[in-house]
Amino acid sequence: MKEVAVYPENIEDCYKVIDHVSIERDHYKVLYEQLQRHRYGQRSEKLSKDQLALFSELLGEDAEKEPQEETVTVPSHQRVRPKRKPLPEHLPRERVEHDLADEEKICACGCTLQRIGEEITEKLEAIPTQFKVIQHVRFKYGCKACETGVKIPSLPPMLIPKSIVTPSLLAMIVSDKFESHLPLHRQTQRFEALGIDLPRNTMANWVIVIGMFCESLLELMKQDMLQAKLIHADESPLRVLSEGKQKSYLWYYYGRVAESQICCIDFQASRHSIHPANFLKDYSDYMMTDAYSGYGELVRKKDVIPTYCWAHARRKFEAIPQPKKAVKKSHWRWKCLTLLAPCIK
């Protein structure tokens, strides 16, 4: 059944309807402009000169004034060929000398040419990764007379006992995984191409062990970071290949003590507020975060003073539509009354 439209019966009710429709129109217009800016607007957060001069009026009469437009004549110039940067000085150099043959050292006048200098051309040589096997040979000693037993020297301390890994190999695997983002299964394929059998699960166990060794180092870094006057905190999602869990989080904490910059990363399986509260439970000073409510439990401590990020606040101002010329309200009212006049009883 079709609904029957109800129209206002007096001018005052018409004004209320017009005001309500005008407010709704402005609201949806703002949403439309925000969607347009989000879809087609500028994504870069680079500050413009107008935004940098936002508070210039508060600086007094000596504030920098807007530059006047003027014509600048650009003289003609010659294009300069870009110069190649020199190779790093710390790389070892191998000198390969090229000399003239003896018969070429005779001048046309019959005199012998004298060396007056040299010209050096440097080329970058790559040496493929080399692997070698270190054999720890221990000599056995025993008494043939009484045959009481065998003596053998003990092995030097090993990073992971009963394992074939050395510190250099372990550093290579960990660096490739976390710094170069090379997964362990791809490292396994690389070793297989070199004829070396290193299963993925074996390397994963090595990474777990070295992570346990680094826990004490992380704790020392954390204790130093807690001495900072200001700590920046943020969290970033991370996908983990495990059953039943698709996304975890890395919690970043950054502080500066004297000339040292310390960054601690805490891996957690969720974005719960208990994680930063536990990690920084002994901290009492300034803390800079975004407006995420997960830091609320930590900020509610009386000893922690929150300082919020201006970059996040600026985004809210950027989302505000640009002001346009205002239309007189009476004009819209008169136009709507003209349309609604036949409907008024």
Rank of each mutant, 00 (worst) to 15 (best):
M1N: 09
V6E: 10
V17T: 06
V17L: 15
I23M: 09
I23F: 12
L31E: 13
E33R: 10
E33F: 03
Q34I: 00
Y40M: 01
K46R: 02
L47R: 01
K49W: 09
S56Q: 06
A63E: 06
E64V: 15
E64G: 09
T71C: 03
V72M: 05
T73M: 08
H77L: 09
Q78I: 14
R81L: 12
P88R: 07
L91Q: 02
R93G: 03
E94P: 00
E97Y: 13
A101N: 07
E104L: 11
C109V: 10
T112M: 10
L113C: 08
R115N: 08
E119H: 12
T121V: 13
L124F: 03
E125Y: 11
Q130F: 04
F131W: 15
H136K: 11
H136E: 14
H136R: 11
Y141C: 04
C146Y: 08
V150A: 06
I152K: 08
M158K: 14
V165S: 12
S168C: 05
L170Q: 06
K177C: 08
K177L: 07
F178C: 10
F178M: 06
H181C: 10
H185W: 12
R190P: 00
E192D: 05
E192K: 12
I196Q: 09
L198I: 14
P199V: 07
M203G: 06
W206A: 07
E215Y: 11
L217K: 09
L218G: 10
L218V: 06
D224I: 03
D224A: 13
L226Q: 11
L226A: 08
I231L: 08
H232R: 06
E235R: 04
L238N: 06
E243D: 09
K245G: 04
K247P: 01
L250K: 02
Q261T: 06
C263A: 14
F267D: 02
Q268N: 04
Q268I: 01
Q268V: 07
A269E: 13
S270Y: 01
R271L: 07
H272C: 13
H272K: 15
N278V: 03
K281Q: 14
S284L: 05
Y292C: 12
Y292A: 08
Y295S: 05
L298R: 02
H312D: 03
A313V: 09
R315W: 00
K316E: 07
F317C: 01
I320F: 02
P321D: 05
P323W: 03
K324L: 05
K328W: 04
K328L: 14
K329M: 10
S330N: 08
R333S: 04
R333E: 14
C336G: 04
A341R: 13
I344D: 00
